[in-house]
Amino acid sequence: MVKTQRFVALLGDGRELFHDTELDSILPTEPVVIDAYGFSDAYHYDGYVFLNTDWFNKYSKNWQTDSSEIDALLVKLVRYAQPGSKSENLVRIQAYLAEPPETISERVEIWRSFYDPVFTEI
């Protein structure tokens, strides 16, 4: 018998705050940490969890002046999304990429909005 699992990408620091017990009771869920050194393309992700407000600090040293590294990460998240994913955060990421704000401060405001302190938006 093949065990079907749902993979959820965790972005930012604070992995210890995320408990997948409730998600696991709905469908077996495996959280996968996206680290600062690379992106694993071994998975297709069913959803995304942003672990803190300033999650983007982990992925770009120059985020204050240049959004290209964060934008590239978000493009990869969309690319590696499970086809048919119902992820709320995926929809928000796609909307951001379709019409990114002009200023860095506006972009940062949107990036911060991806964080959900109770992890109900996956």
Rank of each mutant, 00 (worst) to 15 (best):
A98D: 14
T4L: 14
R15D: 11
V91R: 09
L17W: 08
E88C: 01
V118L: 11
Y48N: 03
D71I: 12
V32L: 07
F114S: 02
Q64P: 02
F18D: 02
D24F: 13
G14A: 05
S60A: 15
T65M: 06
D24P: 04
W111A: 01
Y43W: 06
I122M: 06
Y48T: 01
G47D: 11
P28H: 10
D54R: 12
F50W: 10
K76A: 11
D54H: 12
D35R: 06
S85Q: 04
K58D: 07
Y43T: 05
G14V: 06
P101K: 09
V78R: 05
N57F: 12
A42W: 01
Q64A: 10
H44S: 15
P117R: 04
I93R: 09
G14R: 02
S25N: 02
I122L: 07
F18H: 00
L17N: 14
G38S: 08
F50A: 10
Y45F: 15
A95E: 06
R92P: 00
T103F: 10
E22R: 15
V75T: 10
G47Q: 09
L11I: 04
T103K: 09
F39H: 13
L90D: 03
E22H: 10
Y96E: 06
V91I: 07
S68N: 04
H19A: 14
E99A: 14
N62V: 14
E16K: 10
T29A: 06
E69I: 00
T53M: 12
I26N: 13
T21Y: 12
L17C: 06
V33S: 07
S40L: 03
W63G: 00
L27I: 08
L73S: 11
D71F: 05
L11Y: 05
Y45C: 00
Y48S: 02
W63V: 04
R107Y: 08
D20Y: 15
N52R: 15
T103N: 03
K86Y: 01
Y96L: 08
A9T: 08
G12D: 00
D13N: 12
D24I: 05
Y115K: 01
S68D: 05
A9V: 04
Y80R: 01
S67E: 11
L73T: 12
Q64R: 15
E99I: 06
K61W: 00
G47K: 09
S68M: 04
